[in-house]
Write a protein that binds this DNA or RNA. Structure first.
Length: 264
DNA sequence: ATGGTAGCTCGGCTA
């Protein structure tokens, strides 16, 4: 049995108290973090080692973005893709070398894409689409069982957002983004593990904005975080957990952790 | 129609 978690942590240094709480309570084998907002040398390695997590693949940068895969199972880092071609730290790929041997885990932080869903007036939106298209070309060539997790910054289904109608022109839920993410899915035949366990049209959110006093009011959430697996690997998934309570913890991230368990 | 909050770092960007 191998369990893998994904969590956009919005500064790993500031968030260590709730990371410790999560790891102590859930005891996952591998934790994939996005938005660590620090450089490799600033990463809180010791705090993780004390909890039994001694294997790391960190791709950081100063102040923004950054991803980290932390594990109590030995791993080997084997790739850092720059699908935006601008030097931002948004991906790290590892291969487990202990239990769950040969499993590949890709940890990705897709660009948010700015406010205006038009690449002519908003460069960031174009960069987001370009990132997804380069990732799609990469996925087309994958030839081993792979799990890709992270903050995709897209909520593809109507049941992934609090109001489909009100978010149709909001970056993260526009038809163009959903179509572009659909091409990525089709390039490898990914299985959306979250939706295998919480079927459409059931409500499933992983993010609530900080820009309201109480995230519970109106429940204006979106499912921006995902765990997608190669078809054969997806068949080995035995459970999926959405830790919504973490949004209400002390000094929370605006995203919550997702966990998938595999019988390998 | 607008502005609302958070983090990094100390002005302004990113989300």
């Amino acid at each position: 049995m191998v369990s893998v978690a994904s969590w956009n942590i919005n500064s790993v240094r500031l968030r260590m108290p709730i990371v410790e709480r999560f790891l102590t309570e859930q005891s996952v084998d591998v934790l994939c973090l996005q938005e660590i907002k620090c450089q490799e040398h600033q990463f809180p390695y010791e705090a993780f080692r004390k909890l039994g997590y001694e294997h790391f693949a960190i791709h950081g940068q100063k102040g923004y973005h950054g991803v980290a895969t932390v594990s109590r199972i030995p791993l080997k880092e084997f790739s850092r893709h720059d699908w935006q071609d601008n030097g931002e730290a948004r991906h790290v790929g590892v291969e487990l070398t202990g239990p769950g041997q040969d499993m590949v885990i890709e940890n990705v932080y897709v660009p948010a894409g700015g406010d205006v869903p038009d690449r002519e007036v908003n460069t960031k939106f174009g960069q987001k689409l370009d990132f997804l298209e380069r990732m799609t070309r990469w996925a087309d060539a994958i030839d081993r069982p792979t799990l890709i997790v992270g903050d995709f910054n897209i909520a593809p289904l109507e049941s992934d957002v609090w109001s489909h109608k009100q978010l149709l022109k909001v970056v993260s839920h526009t038809p163009l983004e959903v179509e572009t993410l659909g091409k990525f899915r089709d390039a490898h035949g990914w299985t959306d593990i979250g939706r295998e366990f919480i079927r459409d049209p059931d409500r499933y959110y992983s993010w609530w904005s900080y820009r309201s006093k109480d995230y519970r009011v109106g429940d204006r959430g979106r499912r921006l975080d995902h765990m997608w697996a190669s078809p054969d690997l997806a068949k080995m998934a035995t459970a999926h957990h959405v830790h919504e309570d973490a949004r209400g913890w002390e000094k929370p991230s605006d995203h919550i952790p997702l966990v998938t368990e595999f019988d390998l």
